Computed example of a mutant assay.
Amino acid sequence: MRVVLVAALVAVTLAGCTDGGEETATPVPSAPSPGTSMDMPPSAFSSPKPLRSEPGGPSAAPGLSLALSASAYGPYRVGQSQAELEEAKMVRGLKPDEAGCVSGTGSRLMQNPRLRFSGGRLVMIELTNLGASTDTGLLIGAELDEVKAKYPTGKIIFGTAGAAWETVDGDNALLVRITGDDVTGLVGGVATSVEARHRAGLGC
Rank of each mutant, 00 (worst) to 15 (best):
D39K: 15
M38S: 15
D39S: 14
L139M: 06
A200D: 08
M90H: 02
R197M: 14
G201E: 03
F117P: 03
E87I: 01
Y76A: 05
K155R: 13
A191S: 11
K148P: 02
T184F: 04
S59H: 04
G201T: 05
Y73I: 04
P32F: 00
D145I: 05
K95T: 12
G131D: 09
R121C: 02
E23H: 14
L5M: 01
V123P: 00
A196I: 01
A88V: 07
L64W: 08
S46A: 15
P48M: 05
Q80W: 04
E86L: 06
L9M: 06
S69N: 06
E195W: 01
A132I: 07
V78E: 02
V28R: 13
P41A: 15
D39Q: 14
I156F: 09
S47T: 12
L139R: 10
V176I: 15
G79A: 07
A163V: 08
A163I: 10
R114M: 08
E195G: 06
V183S: 03
G120W: 10
A11V: 11
G159F: 02
L51S: 15
L122Q: 03
A44F: 13
R121A: 14
G119R: 11
P41E: 11
V3E: 09
A72Y: 00
S69Q: 05
P152W: 05
A191W: 00
R121L: 11
A61Y: 00
S37D: 12
D171G: 07
E98Y: 06
K49C: 04
M38Y: 12
A44L: 11
E126K: 08
V168G: 01
T24P: 09
A88M: 06
L139D: 07
G57I: 04
M110A: 14
K150V: 08
L85D: 01
P96Q: 08
K148R: 15
P152D: 01
E86F: 00
D39C: 13
T13W: 11
T105C: 00
S133L: 08
T136P: 00
R121F: 05
M110G: 04
S59N: 10
A60L: 15
E54V: 14
P27Y: 07
V187C: 07
G74V: 07
L127A: 12
L144A: 14
A173K: 09
G162Q: 09
R177H: 12
A161E: 10
M40W: 14
L109D: 14
L5H: 01
V4Y: 11
T160Y: 01
T24A: 14
G100D: 01
V183C: 03
D39P: 13
K155N: 11
G141T: 05
S81G: 13
G79I: 10
V4N: 05
G106Q: 06
R197K: 11
G106A: 06
S43D: 12
K148N: 06
S71D: 10
S65L: 08
C17D: 09
S81Y: 04
P75I: 08
V168Q: 06
S30H: 10
L64K: 09
A200P: 00
P29K: 02
M110H: 15
